[in-house]
Amino acid sequence: MQKIGVEGSLTNISEALREKGYDVVELKQESDAQNVDFCVVTGLDSNMMGIQEASAKGSVIEASGLSANEVISEIENKINHLQ
């Protein structure tokens, strides 16, 4: 299962991902983004934390304006395209 880093303020998304069985970690600093398959952030903090420029091995998902289900769908679409 994919390991997903989620910005701390996005608790509803973290909970929904855990319910789906994903391994979820809170993104507290830029280095956290390097150990996950996906980073879920709000637009405001992604640049502040340097995540968009970080050498994260996965994709950065911009969650602003998206529901938890929409974020999960985006992650699952990206996973399916990688396989």
Score class of each variant (00 low, 15 high):
1 M>C: 06
2 Q>S: 15
5 G>I: 05
5 G>A: 01
6 V>S: 03
6 V>I: 12
7 E>V: 12
7 E>L: 15
8 G>K: 13
8 G>E: 07
9 S>D: 08
10 L>W: 04
10 L>I: 02
11 T>H: 08
11 T>F: 04
12 N>E: 13
12 N>C: 03
14 S>N: 04
15 E>H: 04
15 E>K: 05
15 E>C: 02
16 A>H: 14
18 R>D: 12
18 R>M: 14
19 E>V: 13
19 E>P: 05
20 K>F: 00
21 G>P: 13
22 Y>H: 05
25 V>A: 04
25 V>P: 03
26 E>M: 15
26 E>K: 14
26 E>T: 15
27 L>I: 15
28 K>T: 09
28 K>M: 11
29 Q>F: 08
29 Q>P: 00
29 Q>D: 09
30 E>G: 07
30 E>K: 13
32 D>C: 01
32 D>E: 04
33 A>K: 06
33 A>N: 05
33 A>Y: 06
33 A>I: 05
34 Q>N: 10
34 Q>T: 12
35 N>R: 13
35 N>T: 15
36 V>W: 02
37 D>Q: 08
37 D>F: 08
38 F>R: 00
38 F>Y: 15
38 F>Q: 07
39 C>K: 01
39 C>M: 14
39 C>D: 11
40 V>E: 01
41 V>Y: 07
42 T>Y: 01
43 G>Q: 10
44 L>Y: 11
45 D>G: 08
45 D>T: 11
48 M>D: 08
49 M>Y: 14
49 M>E: 03
49 M>A: 10
51 I>V: 15
52 Q>F: 05
53 E>P: 00
54 A>R: 01
55 S>N: 14
55 S>E: 12
56 A>N: 13
56 A>P: 09
57 K>S: 04
58 G>R: 01
58 G>Q: 10
59 S>T: 06
59 S>N: 07
60 V>E: 10
60 V>T: 11
60 V>R: 08
61 I>R: 10
62 E>Q: 07
63 A>D: 08
64 S>G: 08
64 S>Q: 12
64 S>I: 05
64 S>C: 13
64 S>V: 13
66 L>H: 12
66 L>F: 14
66 L>P: 09
67 S>M: 03
68 A>C: 03
69 N>C: 04
69 N>A: 14
69 N>D: 14
70 E>R: 00
70 E>P: 02
71 V>Y: 05
71 V>H: 12
71 V>M: 05
72 I>T: 04
73 S>T: 02
74 E>D: 07
75 I>C: 08
77 N>M: 14
79 I>A: 03
80 N>D: 15
82 L>A: 14
82 L>T: 01
83 Q>S: 15
83 Q>M: 06
